[in-house]
Amino acid sequence: MSIIFDHVNYIYDEDTAMAHAALIDVNLKIPDGKFIGLIGHTGSGKSTLIQHMNGLIKPSGGTVYFNNEDINAPTYNKKNLRARVGLVFQYPEHQLFETDCFKDVCFGPKNLGLPQKDVELRAYEALKQVGLEDDFFYQSPFDLSGGQKRRVAIAGVLAMKPEVMILDEPTAGLDPKGREDILNLISDLHKKTGITIILVSHSMEDVADYVERIIVMNKGRVAFDAEPKEVFRHVTELEEMGLAAPQVTYCMKELWEAGFDVDTDATTLEEAKNEILKALGRC
């Protein structure tokens, strides 16, 4: 069970003067149950890439496989695919439309053709999972704050019980607290349900603490695809791509240069703390 990209290319507005290659020879294998970060500068093709995963965009060249089946084969059931590969878009405003949050979350499971009871049960579960307070269940989604809207949008996809969940910049436009809340929520989801999560972001800081693997996109190509530690070793290359390693990495590097015996591979605050304590001989 996995998503595989085999030499995928994508060109926007093909055969016009505005033709623009958004993906160039992308090869990826995303196995089950992983928590993956997809990172890249603005316009690097992240959103384009993830829309290939549930068949919203058809590659201009190459093939995308889900569980060893070509998802763009004419007989392939795309609706079923979209239930199994859930995609939460960057702006919740693009999907919220019902009169209250509960009904809105019902939309996904209802489209799967489930009986009304199951639909409501799933919606309730999903809203609970994303930690929306009960008071908001029957309020208009348009009256919610940005963070709450995002939770409802995530619940809307979660209610379809996907095996893979892709989130496009779920933290955009949130304050630090809201950001952390959403990221913790996603991380908890991953731990509890074991579903594959692909988190799109352009901030290393966001991703470093949580993910097991990082895919870095640069100008439509996959630049790095490795564990966070491995990726953060390429600080200069990352900076050339308009990205940066987490603050912790820079900090550890400076400590090391100043003569402290710390491991510069530490990427999370926790690891860094332990390393520093160790170096100071207080462990």
Binding site: L87, F89, N111, G156
Partner: peptide, 12 residues
Amino acid sequence: KIMKAQMARGAD
């Protein structure tokens, strides 16, 4: 974009 977001939730 909206169409895509709803199609991702199974809209037809």
